[in-house]
């Protein structure tokens, strides 16, 4: 390649940086949603690049359910401290206190309160008019229809049948009072791209993406890790050691809440091994996410209600 050509990763990078700068320039009070996963790690790096040598001009916000892996909380706090960024953590305390749990009330309802509800509450509480998220079009079929700048009404709802046309890189950033914008700078990235970029840039990620021996329990065909520290009743998967637990070498391909996130059998312990595994994968990245499997249009429904 000659010196005036950009590789596709650098093209994706340039596009994402352009998008973040548009957000910072056009919105009064933007925020970047930070979910601690690999996509969030990449987004933070892109934001550092977009505003270098200045610092990231918006805070990160983690909408926490309380059900995340302990390694995620540790990583989050250390990572954010190191890069000098303001981190906001929000929870739907009311519903967590009432014992909201996927097995008790169903996955859809639990997500609706602890993720969608908490997100909308937090956005309203801080008066954020723009929220940058790490969703990618490749992840899921309704996300494939998503714009880069996606308008939400006063209730945070997405209207997929009535989206603004999005032309070239000329983004329409205008909103009326009460409305807000969701922005997806990673729209055109795939899981492979994310890992290639993490490797290229040596970006730190949560260690549970790498394989090691873990104790798991099988629930509805999904390998749920056993965790002693998880809040909630004992009979719930992940909390019990009474069920048929087994020890296998595994890793997590995408991260969510413990009761709803399955591990995959894997021996990948380096970036290259993960990339090779992703390349050879016959199942999609969200195969182990219970949230997407409840019905054919479960993600679309959640997005319409305000989820990412």
């Amino acid at each position: 390649m000659n010196s005036l050509n950009l590789s596709y990763l650098r093209q994706l990078e340039a596009e994402s940086i352009e998008i973040m700068r548009e957000v910072a320039a056009e919105f009064k009070n933007p925020v970047m949603l930070y979910s601690v996963g690999k996509d969030s790690s990449v987004m933070v790096r892109l934001a550092q690049k977009a505003f270098y040598p200045g610092s990231i001009p918006f805070p990160l916000m983690h909408v926490d359910t309380g059900y995340k892996f302990p390694e995620m909380y540790t990583f989050r706090d250390e990572f954010c401290k190191k890069i000098d960024v303001r981190l906001i953590v929000e929870k739907n305390e009311e519903w967590i206190a009432r014992g909201c749990h996927p097995l008790k009330m169903g996955v859809d309802k639990c997500c609706s309160y602890l993720k969608t509800g908490a997100l909308l509450q937090a956005l309203a509480k801080h008066g954020f008019d723009a929220a940058i998220g790490g969703a990618r079009r490749e992840e899921e079929k309704s996300r494939a229809k998503e714009r880069v700048f996606s308008l939400r009404d006063a209730f945070g709802q997405w209207d997929p049948k009535n989206q603004r046309p999005e032309l070239w890189d000329t983004y329409n950033t205008k909103i009326n009072d009460g409305e807000s914008m969701r922005i997806f700078p990673l729209s055109n990235w795939t899981e492979k791209d994310i890992w290639e970029y993490i490797k290229l840039e040596q970006i730190p990620v949560v260690p549970i993406y790498f394989a090691r021996e873990r104790e798991v329990v099988e629930h509805n065909g999904i390998l749920i890790p056993v965790s002693a520290s998880l809040p909630g009743p004992d009979e719930m998967p992940g909390n019990t050691v009474r069920g048929k637990t087994k020890k296998i070498t595994c890793r997590f391909r995408s991260l969510g809440c413990i009761p709803c996130t399955g591990a995959i059998a894997s021996r990948a312990v380096t970036f290259d091994e993960i990339i090779a595994e992703v390349r050879a994968a016959t199942k999609s990245e969200r195969e182990n996410r219970v949230i997407d499997l409840t019905s054919d249009s479960s993600m679309e429904q959640k997005k319409k209600e305000g989820y990412f």
Partner: peptide, 24 residues
């Protein structure tokens, strides 16, 4: 169906909006 991401598209058997796909 792989390409029609919205429930309304699958119900009506039509494509409503632009969709993006990736391969390499």
């Amino acid at each position: 169906y792989l390409l029609d991401g919205l429930a309304a598209e699958r119900e009506q058997g039509i494509t409503i909006d632009v969709a993006y796909r990736y391969f390499e």
